[in-house]
Design a protein around this nucleic acid. Structure first.
Length: 596
RNA sequence: GCCUCGAUAGCUCAGCUGGAUAGAGCAACUGCCUUCUAAGCAGUAGGUCAUGGGUUCGAAUCCCGUUCGGGGUACCA
């Protein structure tokens, strides 16, 4: 049982003995004492004065005396206004440090009885265009959430559903057929996903032109879009595709292969991966079957034009199209099929969809439809809904070319990291490829931290005019601190200074104690991040920790310390900070360099 | 229109399961490298927590109204 719980229980007992008041753990909260106050743990006594019938100060003193008597790890206490601050014996903190230092999986929970099998879907790209910054946020969140859930003792299956079919890819296919002149990634030297994306943009431009033309002839915007020749051609391609037309399927396969090769490269650079990949071209048929079964069972209905719908008005929503009048399937049809296949393939306790908040409505409906189709797990689907990445000019739109391309961004960041390292004269002793790997590590550290430190639910702003920072509250700052500690530890080794946790109790300074206390917060932070699906909690903690370390580092010598117990303690402290920071950043998918 | 999310320093963000004087970073200004990595440390300045009410011993945090902004409400995905 940890000390906070001991204090909590002792306080409950005190309330009973002193004031004959019965309460439970929910009403007695032990919190960490504010940094600017003396003490380690705090209990707010205001809620108790009502039945102690004494002033907050007196109430605090009475409870303080009782608890201090009862819990022998507590050294003393102070009452400031209505706040009861306990001061804990140094032995407690030092023992904690020893344990943390010796525990290789400090802060992580082993797979135990609460272990769930959780499937996390993320990335989910369309195969008609390359990945952009919005996808980067998705990929980083999905990967990080998976790691955080593993750290909380769960089994995680990372999955990706590739939207490899549908009208969007037909648009690229049509444009390539029409204006491509047989271009390939090989013939042009353009990365496959970028080449296909180029034709998607060309299609959009052409369509925009055609719509304008038709509207000038008196068509409404909707009519114009439906009657634009390019749009008609793309729809024809989709019908041919669903009818298995060999020529269409061939072209589709070829262009998708180009895209996959490109995606694989981007995923590799980003450092994300998947345990199982689904393709909508494999799952949409199951979806169609499910919809038709639903229609047969009277859950769904068919309109005169042969389109199939779900009536959700009883649930406070609208009618929802499930199959088009030409018989082809839509987005939600595919998702129904994908969900069913996943539950057939794996024994899943929980399904998490990492998808942007623009699709909140979609997932609300998906859960409802699956429930109506008789799947008990339908309502348990969890949509991890995250905010958009916005540019100063507003939302990113692939169709309009206002996107920050993922590959470009990573390259630019790497260039900045390289330039900066060289200006600072760092890494000169490293071999070229090792230095390059470190630049990449720093660049990705900056990018990933920049994205993951913000609350996932909120929209965030990216300004391409200002490059992502490498100083201050950033990934490289945390990486730097790690490298700094590693450097000290290397020097210790060179000087043959061995250190163990057997140090006799040294006196510890306030800064050392603050740092040590920050280390003790890590397990709770991991748990909170898991409960709230929030990499941001981890990111902000890592920053807090290394900031604390840098202050300590500035004020104390480590290797030059003559008192052996102190030197020993500081080395253990440093080493533990490095380990915790590395573990924490690992949960964000950020690697830590040995030197930088 | 309806549904939904948001608004904290000049900018980007923490803090939101109610607790002490609202915190960081960036940008601006000042100091600190003959000593373990200055991608660092210390400091100055910067706030009506959109706004009006309510609940409470106590509200940035919870509730209601208002204003402004994002997203959704497609036979796009």
């Amino acid at each position: 049982m940890n000390l906070e719980v001991l204090i909590q229980h002792a306080t409950i007992e005190a309330l009973k003995k002193l004031y004959d008041y019965d309460t439970d753990t929910a009403l007695v909260q032990v919190q960490n004492t504010r940094k600017d106050q003396i003490g380690d743990f705090t209990i707010v006594v205001f809620p108790f004065v009502r039945f102690s019938k004494k002033s907050p100060e007196v109430t605090g003193k009475e409870i303080g005396n009782f608890v201090t008597e009862k819990v022998n790890l507590i050294d003393s206490f102070q009452v400031v206004k209505g706040f009861l601050n306990f001061i804990v014996k140094n032995d407690y903190w030092l023992k904690y440090l020893r344990d943390a230092f010796n525990d290789n999986s400090f802060g992580l929970i082993n797979q135990g009885e609460n272990c769930k099998t959780i499937m996390v879907e993320y990335s989910s790209p369309n195969t008609n265009k390359p990945l952009h910054l919005g996808h980067i946020r998705n990929n980083l969140l999905g990967y990080s959430i998976s790691e955080i859930l593993k750290a909380n003792g769960h089994k995680v299956i990372k999955t990706n559903i590739v939207n490899d079919r549908g009208i969007h890819i037909c648009k690229s296919m049509y444009a390539w057929q029409k204006w491509g002149n047989g271009e390939t990634p090989e013939s042009t030297g353009i990365k496959g996903d970028h080449l296909v994306g180029k034709y998607y943009v060309e299609f959009s431009n052409r369509l925009k032109f055609e719509i304008a033309e038709l509207m000038s002839k008196g068509f409404s915007e909707e009519e114009a879009e439906n009657n634009a020749p390019s749009m008609i051609a793309a729809r024809e391609l989709l019908v041919k595709w669903e009818a298995n037309d060999p020529e269409t399927i061939n072209l589709w396969k070829t262009m998708n292969e180009w895209v996959y090769k490109g995606f694989d490269e981007t995923y590799r650079k980003l450092g994300v991966d998947f345990d199982k990949i689904y393709y909508e071209s494999d799952t949409y048929i199951t979806g169609k079957e499910e919809v038709l079964r639903g229609e047969k069972e009277g859950v769904f209905f068919r309109k005169e034009d042969q389109s199939v719908w779900a009536d959700l008005t009883a649930d406070g929503l609208d009618q929802k199209l499930l199959l088009r009048s030409d018989g082809t399937s839509v987005y939600i049809t595919q998702d129904i099929g994908t969900a069913k296949m996943r539950y057939n393939d794996f024994d899943i306790d929980k399904m998490i969809y990492v998808v942007g908040n623009e699709q909140n409505y979609h997932f609300q409906i998906l859960a409802l439809l699956l429930d109506k189709l008789g799947y008990s797990w339908g309502k348990d689907l969890f949509h991890f809904s995250y905010g958009m990445v916005e540019l100063p000019s507003g939302k990113m739109k692939s169709r309009e070319g206002t996107v920050v391309d993922a590959d470009d961004l990573i390259e630019e960041m790497t260039d900045v990291a390289r330039k900066m390292s060289q200006e600072l004269g760092k890494l000169e002793s490293l071999a070229k490829d090792e230095a390059e790997a470190t630049y990449r590590m720093i660049a990705l550290g900056a990018l990933k931290y920049f994205i993951l430190k913000v609350d996932p639910r909120k929209n965030m702003l990216f300004n391409p005019e200002e490059s992502i920072d490498f100083n201050g509250n950033t990934g490289p700052f945390i990486q730097y601190t790690h490298a700094r500690i590693k450097s000290v530890l290397r020097k210790a080794e060179e000087k043959q200074i061995n250190f163990t946790t057997d140090f006799l109790l040294p006196e510890i300074s306030q800064k050392e104690k603050d740092l040590l206390k920050t280390i003790t917060l890590f397990p709770d932070v991991v748990k909170e991040a898991g409960d709230n699906y929030s990499p941001a909690v981890i990111a902000n903690y890592c920053y807090e920790l290394v900031k604390e370390y840098n202050q300590f580092y500035h004020d104390h010598s480590i290797l030059a310390e003559s008192d052996e117990a102190k030197r020993n303690f500081r080395l253990v402290l440093s080493s533990t900070v490095a380990k915790v920071a590395k573990t924490g950043m690992g949960l964000l998918g950020i690697q830590m360099p040995e030197r930088m």
